[in-house]
Simulated assay, not measured.
Amino acid sequence: MSKVYDLAVIGGGVIGLAHAATAARRGKKVVLIERERRANGASIRNFGFITVTGQERGLSWELARRTRDVWAEVAPAAGIPIEHRGLYLSARSPEAMAVIEAFLATEMGEGCKALDAQGFRNLTEGLGGADLCGGLYSPHELRVESRHAIPLLTRWVAEGLGVDILPETVAFSSVPPRLETSRGVIEAGQVVVCPGDDFSTLWRDRIAAYDLKRCRLSMLRLADPGVRLPGALMSDLSLTRYAGYAALPEAAALRAKLLSEQPRHYENGVHLIVAQGGDGTLIVGDSHHYDDLPGPFAPASAEDDILDEYARATGRPAPAVLERWVGVYAVAADRTFLVDTPADDVRLVIVTSGTGASTCFGIAERVLDDLMGDK
């Protein structure tokens, strides 16, 4: 290929797309290399929920706030519908309400508010079981339909921003200025590698130093429940999973209570997110199982526990299951994402917490500020 690029991005999931879009919006000549025909991994197998509230305090929370703002700009330009906004987290015990009150006392609670049981029901068309104590409302989130949003974002990056996208192309090397690929040599001044959970193809030794594992999650699409949700739903289990809540001292009592009452939910790593599409159907999940290489065999008990938590949180039986699938993403015990410098003018970027859609643009801006400077 004769064209010389300022930046080559390897990996066409949401992290790679965010880097390509950010660089192109800054006037750079960009090529994006994707080994599959289209993104088919974690980026399309999730809720499409850009989550701010509950992200780990500090940098992750700040990156999510920035990413939410960029999504709000990019989605209309790319023709991506925003399905709904905001978060409603139901609480079934005084211990859960104590975590919510503690969260609201931090800087992360800005703009959020506690709801009593009736207030929660009024805003969610009567959802909530008999044991509902109240809940948390956040206005900060927005939601897109991942399986449609990622292809639309890809098209916009190509047609709207002028990025050259090379699908079904494997990069064998990633050190500029000449990258060896299955399409031949590509010339680029700088490179960002976004491998997702591919720990072997490029920079294997660098990735191995971070002791990453993989998480397999179970997801469901349920039939339209006949209710139009005002935003995404979460529940008590989320307060002990999302670090922005779970790191608060008040979460310890709630964790002990839930471990005693719902031990299998914890064994399956279940917490609840319910997101609704324009057609009324619900994306519901999820469970979490960790291993170096999780098998493709998800336990039926995980699905049962997800549906059980749906019923507990909403006070209604779960609608019929229309689809079910698993996703796999990279995880680390000590960080939500990593940025490594394996060579001059190369950055290796992996989100290690399942928060790619929620932090992608903030991470991309941070990485490219460092990589490109005034170049």
Rank of each mutant, 00 (worst) to 15 (best):
A209I: 02
R183H: 15
S174A: 15
R155C: 03
M219G: 05
A209C: 10
I186A: 08
G162S: 12
A158H: 14
W203D: 12
M219A: 05
S200G: 09
A208P: 11
S174I: 02
E180T: 09
L142N: 05
G135V: 03
S174D: 14
Y137M: 06
R204E: 15
D224L: 00
R183I: 08
V157L: 12
D211F: 14
P195Y: 13
E180P: 01
L142P: 06
G135L: 05
D224Y: 00
Y137C: 02
T201E: 05
A209M: 13
V191E: 02
Y137T: 01
E187A: 15
D197H: 14
S138Q: 13
V193S: 05
L220F: 03
S174E: 06
E159M: 07
R155F: 06
D224V: 01
S182W: 02
S173M: 07
R206E: 15
I150P: 00
G135E: 06
V191I: 05
R183W: 10
T201S: 15
L179C: 07
I207P: 09
L202I: 04
L220H: 01
S200D: 15
L220C: 06
I207C: 11
D198W: 03
D164T: 13
E168Q: 14
E187R: 12
S174T: 05
T201V: 08
S146V: 06
V170E: 01
R221L: 02
G184R: 06
A208K: 14
P167S: 13
P167N: 12
E145V: 04
S146G: 12
M219L: 13
R183V: 11
D164H: 07
V175R: 13
T169R: 04
I186G: 04
